[in-house]
Computed example of a mutant assay.
Amino acid sequence: MTRANPEQSFGANPKEVRDTNHYQEEYVKSFVEKWDDLIDWDQRWKSEGDFFIELLRSRGVKRVLDVACGTGFHSVRLLSAGFDVTSADGSPEMLYKAFNNARNRGHLLRTVQADWRWLNRTVHEQFDAVICLGNSFTHLFAEHDRRKALAEFYATLNHDGILVLDQRNYDSILDQGFSSKHKYYYCGEDVIAEPEHMDEGLARFRYTFPDNSIFHLNMFPLRRKYARRLMHEVGFQHVETYGDFKGTFDANDPDFLVHVAEKEYMEDDEED
């Protein structure tokens, strides 16, 4: 028998919880402690390969701000590859777990708790790259929050810096239904991650673990063209999108999309 975790509070109408500020109540300690079972670091390392490492190196990146570090997977990978990494997250539980994960792998993680909408109040440095991974950007429900966060990312980048932002392929889920291969991002074999409710304003996902415990996350189903348009409108000059780490893909095929937005002005940039 499955059981929802009592630490998470969504009130009487969970599908009505569409609030950016609610995410801290969703990432409760008991959920964070199980998060690495969902990711499976070793399997994700194999499936992802060196995509992000090669991407950053190809653009001469040295200093990286990981604004959604979660339990530290990408921060640790990039530290291991020689990048100078600062790790941020809005959840103190995630930061605590990330710091310990890094320490257990021989790294000292430089962490900071930060709300993206006011990122530059907390982070007073410039970076060659900002990475926002793990479908984290879809915790922002209001358009003004999304624009504000993107503008903050833009401001913390050096003049030729890049933003790397990923998301689930919500177009496919909304238009074709949910079907995940679990090959790239969520590699835990015994954990089920699937939508409990989908509409144009809410993606409510249910996570079921081997001990039959259940957790939920409420997210905004970000469509690809809309995300790219927002990046252009806040100032990014060129946006390239990959589907499951491939440059060429069928729109409905990939589980995840990775956007690479360049701050440097490119005269010949083409719009969608």
Results as ranks from 00 to 15, higher is better:
A155P: 05
E267N: 12
I162P: 05
K62W: 11
D272G: 13
N101W: 01
D199T: 08
N21H: 10
D268W: 15
F10E: 02
L163D: 05
F10W: 07
L230C: 05
S180P: 00
F215G: 01
H139R: 02
E26R: 00
H144F: 12
L109K: 03
K225Y: 15
N218H: 09
F127L: 11
R77L: 15
L65H: 13
Y23M: 13
E16N: 07
K183F: 07
V164S: 03
Q126S: 15
L257A: 04
D269M: 15
D269E: 10
D253E: 15
S91C: 01
A151R: 08
N212W: 06
Y185I: 01
M1Q: 04
A4D: 12
R59F: 15
S91F: 02
E16Q: 14
H238P: 01
M94C: 08
T86K: 15
L222N: 06
D269P: 00
Q167L: 06
Q167M: 12
A129G: 05
D166W: 09
P210N: 12
H107S: 08
N5A: 14
D166F: 05
E33V: 06
T156V: 11
V67R: 09
H259D: 08
E16D: 11
Q8V: 04
T111Y: 04
A4M: 06
R57C: 03
G106T: 11
Y186M: 04
P195Y: 02
D40T: 11
D171E: 10
E240N: 13
E26A: 13
F245T: 15
T111G: 01
T71A: 12
Q24A: 12
K34Q: 15
R224T: 10
D66W: 13
H22M: 04
V260M: 00
G70F: 02
L217P: 00
E200P: 12
F52W: 12
N100A: 04
A129L: 01
F127R: 10
S30V: 09
H197M: 06
E270C: 07
A193Q: 07
Y186I: 00
D171N: 12
E48M: 15
S180C: 03
L202Y: 13
I214M: 06
L133F: 06
H74A: 11
T71N: 13
D250W: 07
Y265G: 06
N5G: 13
F236H: 08
S180A: 03
T86M: 11
A203N: 04
L150A: 03
A4E: 11
E262M: 11
Y27P: 08
T2K: 11
N212M: 10
E240H: 09
S91Y: 01
L165R: 01
E194V: 02
E189M: 03
N21W: 09
L222R: 06
D160L: 02
L165Y: 00
Y27Q: 07
M94W: 01
D268V: 09
D253P: 03
Y265R: 08
F51W: 15
V164M: 07
G243S: 07
T208E: 09
P254G: 04
E143F: 00
V67M: 13
D190R: 04
K34N: 14
G134P: 00
K46E: 14
S213P: 09
A81F: 09
D84I: 02
F220E: 08
R63H: 15
P221K: 00
L119K: 08
F137T: 02
N252D: 14
K29C: 14
E48D: 13
F220C: 09
V258M: 05
T20K: 12
H74G: 10
A203I: 04
D84W: 08
A261G: 02
